[in-house]
């Protein structure tokens, strides 16, 4: 476990916004009936709840986001993910569900600063002016799939596949270069 490294090992870049690969983050995919009481109970035990359509619920360093009508993505500490996945699997043992760790399959980025939106405006066909806090938007960043949400004041988090982390960093670096401010 000590040998685990994220795709870009925490690389950062300072432009008119700060972009960073956020390092290892635990992620668990849950495919299940989102109305299931067992699921609600299992998430409640983690201090979370089942998010509404396109929602993301955060609490205590964990978050769970709505990915599709039968899929959630749970975020937690990297080291916790296997245990949480195992707990969820047993909690959902009596129903049709798929719970699996995907921490290593993804890369997580943050874009920070008052002009963070402007970085992503250049890459994603999303109306950032109307993107509320608490919404997880799955979309496209240039040529790759991405999921993003407002993860703090002046901060947007973006998840993509691990193999394209370098490409994503390239996009964010170019889009945040000084002189490229839109407003």
């Amino acid at each position: 476990m000590s040998d685990a490294v994220s795709a870009l090992n925490g690389q950062t870049h300072d432009g008119f916004a700060r972009v960073a690969e956020a390092g290892l983050r635990g992620m668990v995919t849950i495919r299940a009936d989102l109305g299931s009481a067992a699921l609600a109970g299992a998430l409640a035990a983690l201090g979370l709840s089942v998010p509404a359509q396109r929602g993301i619920v955060s609490a205590g360093g964990k978050a769970v986001g709505w990915m599709s009508p039968d899929e959630l993505l749970l975020l937690c500490d990297y080291a916790q993910a296997p245990q949480i996945a195992a707990d969820l699997t047993s909690a959902l043992a009596d129903e049709h569900a798929l719970v699996t760790v995907v921490s290593d399959a993804r890369a997580l980025f943050t874009v920070q600063g008052a002009k963070a939106d402007q970085v992503l405006m250049k890459l994603c066909p999303v109306d950032f002016a109307t993107l509320p806090e608490g919404e997880l938007r799955r979309t496209r960043a240039a040529q790759v799939a991405a999921a993003l949400w407002r993860s703090g004041p002046d901060e947007i988090s973006i998840v993509c596949f691990r193999s394209v982390a370098g490409y994503m960093m390239g996009l964010l670096e170019v889009a945040s270069r000084k002189g490229g401010e839109i407003f």
């Binding site: 250049k122 193999s163 394209v164 490409y167 390239g170």
Partner: peptide, 16 residues
């Protein structure tokens, strides 16, 4: 073409 040139002309998928 915008950002799609040079290193990020298209996504390059890398294994670990």
């Amino acid at each position: 073409a915008a950002e799609a040139r040079g290193e990020i002309f298209q996504p390059l998928r890398r294994t670990p």
